[in-house]
Design a binder for these strands. Structure first.
Lengths: 216, 216
DNA sequence: AACAGATTTTACCTGCGAGTAACATTACTC
DNA sequence: GAGTAATGTTACTCGCAGGTAAAATCTGTT
């Protein structure tokens, strides 16, 4: 027997537990997820999970925060502030679809877990989602902190409008995640292009304060 | 004591149970929903629910189907086939946002219940959602069954493209549901206008086969 | 070798909620 | 008003999963 060393340092075990938990929560949903199964997948017995992570709720919140952190990082990696708004949006959406394609479980834990839970969990999930939404809102609105010049043809968006566009984008992107599964030959870039086709011109109109009106 | 008649015919009680169940499922999510509470809200004791509706799963599926039926009806009521594509989309979206504003619990049961459940439930929910998605796809694509003339500037969409647009729209609309709660002065018509502003031109481009390309 | 502290497990308690058996009551029919 | 079918309730069983006490085993230190 080569390496029988089952004993591992706490930091490593904790990460294994969180990874296993993300898998199980993603597959089964919060309530149907069984702590014992999470422990098994992490190669450990149940009391270890409680010793290191506290409770099932704490464990879930740790997962949510971990996933949110990674997605935020991916977004900020791609959507560099020195790009034009159009390029930033393009890169941001690409980052999103790439993330979902690469780590579907993580996206699942973040967003497909809409069932109402206890107030503690609901608050944690809401916080994580608000963070993502804030990232996207910044992506959509020209951020003054970046010193990015607003192109002459695009006026600044109000917060309200930016939040509207951000919510619509996140919702559409989330939903398109399923569409991607139906058409496996469509990669992240292709889906991004389609979505840009669909929304970019209209976003320009919204920026410019134009509002669609019913014909006739 | 005026009317002590607690006894009610089965059809009425069943409907009361389903209404109560929609409420509770919407508030708590499937797993956290407690059958006893549903029974109480329906003014009845637990075994009645099992006698009339079968099991918790059956009850939930009955709720899902009921909600789907009503939403489909609302969509078809507004999006008359004799309208132009633009008007139909406008009316369809208006119907949707009106429905969500009027019956948030029903929408909740249909879509905010993404957690993975047992295969029976998952299948039922998937079926209901596919129905809605099909309705929207028909709304987006010019439906040959209606004999609707395709305007000269808009070519027929392929199924793939129509499904893409439909998914994006449903996802955006779903997500904008939350946005509406943050801005209570925005009614269904106003939200519909904003969404039309954002997507209508782009949808035309997608129809015409134009695809956005990264600048530079 | 002996001790300390971290890692890990076995074996349990506990509450809660789905589902049911048996019994009670009202209303309808002839 | 006797019989019967529908409507309704009380009071249970049972299994499952979250959480824990107590003990065991490993690893490093002096």
């Amino acid at each position: 027997m080569s390496q029988r060393s089952k004993r591992l340092p706490r930091a490593v075990r904790e990460q294994q537990m969180i990874d296993a938990a993300i898998q199980v929560f993603s597959e089964r949903g919060y309530h149907s997820a069984i702590v014992t199964e999470i422990a098994e997948r992490a190669g450990v017995s149940k009391p270890m999970v409680y010793l290191y992570l506290g409770s099932k709720e704490d464990l879930f919140l740790a997962c949510v925060r971990s996933c949110a952190r990674e997605l935020t990082a991916a977004l900020q990696e791609y959507a560099r502030p020195e790009l034009t708004p159009e390029q930033r949006l393009w890169q941001g959406l690409t980052a999103f679809f790439t993330f979902v394609a690469d780590y579907p479980e993580r996206w699942n834990v973040l967003y497909q877990q809409a069932a109402k839970h206890g107030s503690t969990i609901a608050a944690g999930v809401a916080e994580a989602r608000d963070q993502i939404l804030l990232d996207v809102t910044r992506l959509v609105r020209d951020d003054p902190a970046t010193g990015q010049q607003t192109p002459p043809d695009r006026t600044r968006m109000s917060d309200k409008e930016a939040e509207f566009v951000a919510r619509a984008l996140v919702g559409a992107a989330d939903s398109l995640t399923d569409w991607m599964r139906s058409y496996p030959d469509e990669g992240p870039e292709q889906v991004t292009r389609r979505l840009m086709t669909m929304v970019w011109v209209g976003m320009g109109n919204a920026h410019a304060g134009q509002i669609w009106s019913p014909p006739g």
